[in-house]
């Protein structure tokens, strides 16, 4: 197929149990910018079951067109079924660029689609642009985020990439935006793999990627002092608790609370690192926070090279002092 026949910027809009994932809406904003540079349209692929309430959402966030498949077999995400459906949509609509949010489902789905189509794919991009030849510039941070690699897919189409969630801002929801909505029927063959059960994680608190203040602890923190973290958290609105990887590996916190290369990328207003040394793999997940503060008893800890405010000391002394001062501020004088 000649490259010329492929046109438009397409985003896969991921919904889970009837909720569109914010990471794919964030990508719509980025897709709009690319489409403007290429003077083309933004389209959204949406897959699921009983999608009526959702189909207009991508339009409100910047899509010109929504192409959706509403099928009982697609009620739950199944990598095999979703892949088959998306491959059929891509073959029919021939996107020049096809972007997928790098959620767990997205990171699994995207490469299997690329392999089926025998096209190139770039993982976890943190920036996009269009080069002078009109190719999609896919910018990603390999080697634990130490470098930025600029990648293109010069010949094959579509140009595919996944993007890291929470790197691009969420576009404003504008319900007066208009667009075209197309219902597609695709073949869904019987899968050889089936979801038999789902157990919802116990997420009482705010997910860490949505928190504005993150109180984050590492191996230097003893969980016997957990009450200190909670007390601290209570002084801030939209705050939550996150951690470094050894804490998760030790089974002390769920993986959904891990910050870093193999965890989540966060960019809160305040990231307070307590007993975290500041390994490159950890920094990769929080280096874009607006204000980084650290409490560490080792004056040579790496984290002190990458923070706005660092307190050298034992957290057992520092946090109570901090709590005391914050209480004073709160008390009406």
């Amino acid at each position: 197929m000649s490259k010329e026949k492929f046109e438009g910027v397409y985003v896969y809009i991921e919904q889970r149990k009837g909720v569109i994932q914010e990471a794919s809406l964030q990508l719509l904003g980025e897709a709009r910018k690319l489409a403007e540079k290429l003077k083309t349209e933004v389209s959204a692929f949406l897959i699921g079951y009983q999608l009526k309430k959702l189909v207009k959402e991508p339009i409100y966030y910047g899509a010109d067109k929504v192409i959706y498949v509403d099928n009982k077999e697609c009620a739950n995400y199944n990598p095999e079924i979703y892949k088959t459906v998306l491959v059929q949509l891509v073959m029919k609509y021939k996107p020049e660029i096809f972007l997928i949010a790098g959620t767990k489902y997205g990171r699994e789905l995207a490469p299997s689609i690329a392999a089926d189509l025998e096209t190139g794919i770039t993982a976890d991009c943190t920036a996009f642009d269009i080069d002078e030849k009109g190719n999609l510039l896919q910018i990603r941070p390999p080697f634990g985020g130490r470098v930025h690699a600029y990648i293109i897919t010069p010949e094959k189409r579509p140009q595919m990439a996944t993007a890291r969630p929470n790197v691009f801002p969420l576009p404003e929801r504008n319900v007066s935006r208009k667009g075209e909505i197309i219902k597609e029927e695709t073949e869904v063959s019987k899968p050889s793999m089936a979801l038999i059960k789902f157990e919802k994680g116990s997420e009482a608190e705010i997910p860490i990627e949505k928190a504005e203040v993150l109180i984050s602890f590492g191996r230097g923190f003893n969980l016997e002092d957990a009450h200190l973290l909670e007390e601290l958290c209570d002084f801030f609105l939209k705050s939550s608790i996150s951690c470094s990887r050894p804490i998760v590996d030790a089974g002390l916190m769920p993986r959904s609370r891990q910050v870093g290369q193999t965890g989540k990328t966060v960019r809160p207003k305040l990231y307070l690192a307590i007993g975290i040394s500041g390994a490159i793999q950890h920094l990769a997940g929080m280096k874009d926070s607006k204000f980084i503060a650290a409490i560490n008893k080792d004056p040579n800890a790496e984290i002190f090279k990458f923070c706005d405010f660092g307190i050298i000391g034992d957290y057992k002394e520092v946090i109570p002092l901090l709590i005391e001062e914050l209480k004073k501020k709160q008390a009406p004088s």
Partner: peptide
């Protein structure tokens, strides 16, 4: 199908670096 056009050192956002005992 993909080509690496260039690789650059990732800039670390500049920080205030106010470090106190």
């Amino acid at each position: 199908p993909t080509r690496v056009v260039k690789v650059i050192a990732a800039p670390m956002p500049a920080r205030r670096l106010e470090i106190r005992e």
